[in-house]
Design a protein around this nucleic acid. Sequence first.
DNA 1: CATCAACCCTGAGAGC
DNA 2: TGCTCTCAGGGTTGAT
Length: 278
Amino acid sequence: MPELPEVETIVRALREGGRSGAPLPGRVVRQAHLYWERTLAAPAAEEFYRRLAGQRVDTIYRRGKYVCIQLDADILLVHLRMSGDLLVTGSNAGRLPAAHVRAAITFTDGTTLVFNDPRKFGRIWLVNDPQTVLSGLGPEPLDETFTPEEFHRRLAIRHSRLKPLLLDQSFLAGMGNIYTDEALHQAGLHPAQPGSSLGFKQSERLLAAIRSVLNEGIRANGASIDWVYRGGTFQNNFRVYRRTGEPCRCCNTSIERIQIGQRGTHYCPSCQPLMPSG
DNA sequence: CATCAACCCTGAGAGC
DNA sequence: TGCTCTCAGGGTTGAT
């Protein structure tokens, strides 16, 4: 499931070329097509086709888990959700990847940007101002200007447990189930620990752990699990995620799996004790 | 604000 | 082998 590192990997591939062919910037849209209309969040399909045609791709960047493709006049925003993927097919391919194509944008050079999404949860927006979609997002965890002091301040006013809090995109943008479990383990914090119970040192340690696992994930080109394969290798570095019953790499204690906020949560009971929050 | 449940979907894995 | 059943998982919405 694409989280920040996986989205970053995809963005870099689209921007710089690589697994998905030559770089996207500079190409001009000839035509778009939707194979599953609900993939398009806004605007209506007819307007989407009309406005997109003729626009040239400018810059490509990531905000939270969104892929942002800046065009001449508008910006194309893509959220991959559970199973989405973006790739570019070659000019002489003429065929789309067999599996689950929900949308395709063909350029004047004959290449096509394909949105593949087996579970149909992914969404695409074409808007003039990205803020109409992205305004609710919290800070970027890897942004250097986002300080431990600021992070601690945000934690201090939230009584929610750390697991659902870190998954809340308005609190912090980009974390998903994998990297949240991994970061909490690295920080030695129990997933049910209330955010407001953390002292400054613990907040600082948590932010460092978050950055550490995200950077590690990016370096590994993301994680490849389930049926969505991206060529990433971070799954080989999991310390707790999907390691239920296996020994903790730090202390050999058996990793446990619990439900917190409707999410499967993996942690080491020994390395991540629940601290009294009084 | 915190918590929970339902919903959107499909493929994988389990059970038979 | 092949069927049916359950469930994960991000995010949104609505209820308590």
